[in-house]
Simulated assay, not measured.
Amino acid sequence: MAESTTILLVPGAWHSPDCYDLVAQQLEVAGYKTDKVHLPSFSPLNHHLDFEADVSQIRKQIESACNQGQKVIVVAHSYGGIPSNEAIKGLDLKTREQSGLPGGVSHLFFCCSFIIAEGQSLISAFGGNDLPWFMISEDRLEVKPATPDEIFYNDCSQTQVDSAIAALGPHSYQVFHSRCTYAAWKDVPSTYLYCLRDAAIPISVQEKMVKETAEGFGVATQVVDASHSPFLSKPEETALAIRRSAGEDI
């Protein structure tokens, strides 16, 4: 099973896809192929006004794996879940099979990510207000996190925190206002990884998205006692959770 599955790793805002390296190593040892997405809205030369470039990049990499006959598990962290949902439209396994095409997205794995309905954006999911730790440029094109050590890495070692902060980059702010037109979790089997110590998306908000927004769509849940960055603080547990979502009995 593993060799026929590609796990596509989509980071959240401000993060390079290299943040997934510890998890990717675990998955590759278990026999899976992995691929990482560099979001165009992360540290761009010119800031993007919507999430279309992110959607396009994710979709391109999904299609590449599908065309090799691979089942694709999309692992999305934080903001990454929003363009990932949009990118999956028409690329799920069932639709591809019905069209006589190889491969397809077999599972969507939310790593303390956003589950939002059609017509919603990241900002609207928070009631239309910027979060207090958003540092937004005067032209409202760029956003940085004010206290990443507290918000993203509150259970990491100081060495991990220093390394992670050094790897952060500015993000295109306006992508947070892009509204989804498709909710992949309605059509694709999905798993949500609850992160109990998350200071960016508190566990109460995570649970509300799963139990209210996605009510009735059978989103499975797993739990890790970690911050907003379980791929750094709990890479083994995160990799095992992803493998379970792939159907492994472990």
Rank of each mutant, 00 (worst) to 15 (best):
M1I: 13
M1P: 15
E3K: 15
P11T: 11
D18P: 07
D18H: 15
C19P: 06
A24S: 15
A30L: 07
A30I: 00
H38R: 14
S43G: 13
S43T: 14
N46T: 15
H48D: 13
S56W: 02
R59N: 05
Q61N: 09
E63L: 15
Q68F: 01
G69M: 06
Q70W: 05
K71Y: 04
G80P: 09
G81R: 07
I82Y: 03
I82E: 06
N85M: 02
L91E: 11
K94E: 07
T95N: 11
S99N: 13
S99G: 12
P102T: 12
P102N: 12
G103C: 14
S106R: 13
F109V: 06
C112P: 05
I123K: 15
I123N: 13
S124C: 08
L131A: 13
I136E: 02
E138N: 11
P148R: 14
D149A: 01
N154I: 13
D155G: 15
G169Q: 02
Y173F: 02
C180N: 01
A184G: 05
K186M: 09
T191I: 08
Y192D: 01
L196M: 01
A199S: 12
V205K: 11
V205I: 11
E207N: 00
K211Y: 08
K211R: 10
G218C: 09
Q222W: 15
Q222N: 14
V223E: 14
V224G: 01
A226L: 10
H228K: 03
P230T: 02
F231D: 00
E237R: 15
L240P: 09
S245K: 07
I250V: 07
